[in-house]
Write a protein that binds this DNA or RNA. Structure first.
Lengths: 244, 244
DNA sequence: TTTCTATAATGGTCTGACCATTAAGGAATG
DNA sequence: CATTCCTTAATGGTCAGACCATTATAGAAA
């Protein structure tokens, strides 16, 4: 980006590296190298502080950073400590949510990305979904029908998308979908949302039927129709909120 | 999620919320509500500590969390303080990198996701890329030719993908691409990498030509061929590393 | 054997201090 | 008047030491 040749003498910018940064980096290195792996327990804070030759507060800021990054989990009490976590996509979702809140992303971008993403997912799921996956999807759709509250039905919807993404056997798509679901959740409100929810359930069953028949184009088409209805609603409500 | 009726007395789980968590949450709320926005300056740590009625250390852990989340930036010195940042996707990339390092994601998943993603991107770019975008892509490809070091050429490649993603006019894709680039960077090594790099440059020019001609299928095909070569190399090297 | 209790380990928080960096104002200088 | 230098105060970064709340464990008591 800023690497265009310039007449200035190319001194490297002095970077005062803070203690906690160095500590984080070292721990991350051990993670990438495999020296540290999920389930491992780090020494106690007081011990680590001695080992790194920093104060306990500096060390704690490092551990706190790693915790909010989802890398470790701090457990209180005897036999407590910092445990290396297994991978959880929550933090990625949180990061994306923060990013959107900082105002750089429009609703249009979100919906477009979701549409394109679900396109891929449906195609892959069509090829790879096992009968277990399909049964689970149907079970969720059934459950949605029985749920009474708007919020519970929304939770079902999120789960439906997550299971569908899982059917691709590629976790990356799961992360992307979860992130978009979490972000779009904030927009999905409004007076006629309940009616919309009801009418979407049938579409979920249809999609499963297409997947089971391995009819890729029909499945993609169903998903598109489905999402476009949702997005129309979201957009309308977003405009209404902006007006009101 | 956990709201299914159960015979157990439904006591709410006691959640000992730590001070820094509450502080983070309140600040995030103000962010989502728009009370706080990019560029704003938070009060000084000592002031904030009084306001939240916590010690400075607890408050600092909160600020540190927000900083590593990319939400604020801490500036030292007089007139320093915590400034709300503009949106930067770096943290999302970092989160994804952490996720992969924690060992849940295979190389196959990464390459497959990239392939599918670039498919979308090429199609969208084909429809939306401006002449400025295309010229920039060509300029980067030209620059790649002139670069001498492997690392510099890799940087060019990453930039090429980033600019291509930007041509979709949808920042979400940019984030996804950046993340995958950062993660795959660790795998792209090996003895014959330099030869591969050279042979890839021509492909980049071809892609731009297809984009300019708005020949979607040709562009997609070129990108697929391109990536498949890269991925074959990466896979081979990954196996070699595992054997050695 | 079971149950209770004291103990020690550990993360969470607090207090108060000092250091390093930085911006701004004022003094000295030309 | 303009410039340069120095002082000062504000602020984040770090440190040291203490106490609290929670938790697992070992030992005492029943």
């Amino acid at each position: 980006m800023a690497s265009s040749p310039s007449p200035k003498p190319s001194f490297a910018p002095i970077k005062t590296r803070r203690a906690f940064e160095v500590i984080c980096e070292q721990i991350r290195e051990q993670l990438a190298a495999g020296t540290l792996k999920a389930g491992d327990k780090l020494p106690a804070e007081r011990e680590l502080a001695v080992e790194f030759q920093v104060s306990r507060s500096a060390l704690r800021e490092a551990l706190r950073s790693l915790e909010v990054a989802g890398i470790i989990r701090n457990v209180k009490g005897a036999k407590g400590g910092a445990f290396v976590q297994t991978a959880e996509p929550d933090r990625i979702v949180q990061a994306m949510q923060d990013y959107v809140h900082l105002g750089d992303i429009s609703l249009g971008e979100l919906t477009e990305a979701r549409l394109a993403l679900q396109d891929i997912i449906v195609r892959l799921a069509c090829a790879r979904a096992t009968e277990t996956d399909l049964a689970e999807l149907e079970a969720i759709a059934e459950r949605t029908k029985r749920e009474t509250s708007v919020e519970a039905r929304y939770t079902c919807a999120v789960e439906y998308y997550a299971v569908l993404a899982r059917a691709t056997k590629n976790r990356i798509f799961g992360i992307f979908v979860d992130s978009l679901s979490a972000i779009l959740h904030e927009f999905v409100r409004g007076p006629d949302y309940e009616t919309l929810q009801q009418s979407l359930i049938e579409s979920r069953f249809k999609l499963v039927r297409h997947l089971r028949a391995k009819d890729e184009e029909a499945a993609v088409g169903e998903m598109r129709k489905h999402l476009e209805r949702v997005h129309r609603h979201v957009r309308k409500n977003s405009k209404a909120a902006a007006k009101g």
